[in-house]
Amino acid sequence: MDLLSDVIAVMRTGEPRSARVVWNAPWGQWFAPVPGAAGFQVILHGTCWLIRADAEPLPLSVGDVVFLPHGQGHALADSPTTPIDAEACDPNDPAFVERYVNLPEAGTGPRTVTLCGAYQLDPARAHPLLSSLPEVVHLPARLGRDLRVAVELLGAELERPRLGTDALIPALLDTLLLYILRTWFEEQPTNTVTGWAAALRDPSITAALHAIHSNPARPWTVATLAAQAGLSRSPFARRFADKVGRPPLTYLTWWRMTIAARLLRDTGEPLSAIAGKIGYTSEFAFASAFKRQYGSAPGKHRRT
Results as ranks from 00 to 15, higher is better:
P69E: 01
R111M: 08
L103D: 07
G71C: 05
G39D: 11
P104W: 04
P128G: 04
A118L: 00
P35D: 11
G117E: 03
W30H: 14
T82A: 15
R99Y: 09
T81Y: 14
P69M: 07
D93I: 03
P57F: 03
L76I: 15
T47S: 06
L60I: 02
A19L: 04
W49A: 09
P33D: 05
G73M: 08
P33Y: 14
E105V: 12
E87G: 11
A32D: 09
Y100Q: 04
N102T: 14
Y119E: 04
Y100S: 07
D122M: 04
L50R: 04
C89E: 08
A53V: 10
A75I: 13
A75P: 06
S61L: 05
T82Y: 07
L58Y: 13
T47G: 01
A95R: 07
T114N: 03
L76A: 05
N24R: 03
A19S: 15
P26L: 09
P94M: 06
A126P: 00
G46T: 03
T108M: 14
L58R: 12
P59W: 12
P110N: 03
L129W: 05
F67S: 08
V22A: 08
A86T: 15
L129Q: 01
T81Q: 15
P123M: 01
Y100G: 08
C48I: 05
P80E: 13
A25G: 14
P91L: 11
